[in-house]
Amino acid sequence: MKRFITFLLVFIWGLLAFSQSHDLSGKILSEVNVENIHVINKTQQLFTTTNALGEFTIAVKLQDTLVFSSIQHKPQNVVISESVLKSKTLVVTLEEQINVLDEVSVGKTLTGDLLSDIENTTGEAPINFYDVGIPGYTGKVATQSERRLSQANGEGVAFKTIMLQVLSLNVPVEPILNAISGRTKVLKQHVALEQKSALLHGVKVKFSKMFFELHPLDEDKQNEFFHFCEEDDRFVAICTSNNDLDILQFLEKKYEKYLENLNN
């Protein structure tokens, strides 16, 4: 009888030990970048991201399913076994995600024979500013709204605008008129909206699939949810921080608030 009770106590203790959450330390191995890989405990609805060395820590229980995913890697699932739980360590090797495009032939097919290929080509090579020895712009191309804002602020002002001055103080008139009329303010708002829209698109592309696996939401509500997040004053600051964990935590809090608003 005593042996049976002892066995029963040990059995119960073992069940309790494995049913509790334990912090699991892990490391991602890959031939490409291992930072900011999403580590998701799908069973307990927990998530974290890897650091620059591919290391992470997350709470797990026996038989929990961990999902590893990123844009650069193929998704991989790992079920927590007794051996992993005892060692409290996990090493996962991820394969690079290679997007292979269908072969496309553009223009005439080249044979490898230089003289023959030259005879088969048509048109002239484009001339750039390097060819003619003049300086040229190699930076980021501005959007239409950014160019309009630049002009409204007096950058790159035309000759006729430069000639108009206020009381011989050598001050261009156009920026002053734009500021008084409110045109500059409107253009700044257009630029900010464009940047915010591009940021929102990037967040949707990067996080949608993974986030809605953990936080189910009807497809017709998902786009509305992201616009709900966009209205938050902290959206731009958080989503430009390049910290995936901060973005995920922000989305999770907004998700709870969004569901609360739907229920109300």
Rank of each mutant, 00 (worst) to 15 (best):
H215V: 06
K253V: 02
L200K: 11
G154F: 06
T48F: 10
A142N: 11
V34H: 00
A59R: 07
E252F: 06
G133S: 06
T109L: 13
E124W: 08
V10A: 15
V92H: 00
G154L: 08
I162D: 08
V173L: 15
H215I: 02
E103V: 09
L167N: 13
N36Q: 15
A179V: 05
I127E: 07
Q144C: 00
V91A: 07
S105T: 15
A17S: 13
H38C: 07
G202A: 08
K140G: 02
D246H: 08
D233C: 02
Q144T: 12
R148S: 13
H22C: 03
A52Y: 13
T57N: 11
M210R: 05
F18S: 13
I176H: 00
S116C: 04
K2N: 10
L90C: 03
E219C: 03
I134Y: 08
S208G: 04
N36D: 14
S83C: 03
E31F: 03
D232L: 06
G54L: 01
T121Q: 13
A158V: 09
L169V: 04
K27C: 05
A179Q: 09
E230Y: 07
A17F: 14
A192Y: 06
T50R: 00
G107I: 07
S81R: 03
R148E: 15
T65C: 03
I5V: 14
T89R: 13
F211W: 07
S81P: 00
K196F: 03
L110G: 01
V186A: 15
N36R: 14
V10T: 13
F212T: 04
V236Y: 07
F68A: 01
C239A: 09
L53R: 15
D232Y: 02
F212Q: 06
V191I: 05
V104I: 15
V236N: 06
L200R: 09
T184H: 04
T122R: 12
D113C: 04
E124D: 12
V191K: 04
R183N: 12
Q63H: 12
F207I: 02
L187C: 04
N178G: 02
D117M: 11
R234F: 10
A192E: 14
D64H: 05
R234A: 14
I247C: 01
I176V: 15
K86G: 03
L214D: 05
I118N: 10
L15I: 14
I58N: 00
D117T: 06
L24K: 02
N263P: 01
D113S: 08
N223W: 09
N153D: 10
S150H: 05
V236H: 03
V191M: 04
K257D: 13
T6D: 09
H227F: 14
Q222S: 02
W13Q: 09
N99T: 15
H22M: 07
P216I: 06
I180Q: 12
L193E: 14
K196I: 05
S30Q: 02
L167G: 05
Q20I: 08
E95P: 02
Q72P: 00
S150W: 06
L245G: 00
N178T: 07
K257Y: 08
S105G: 09
L199S: 05
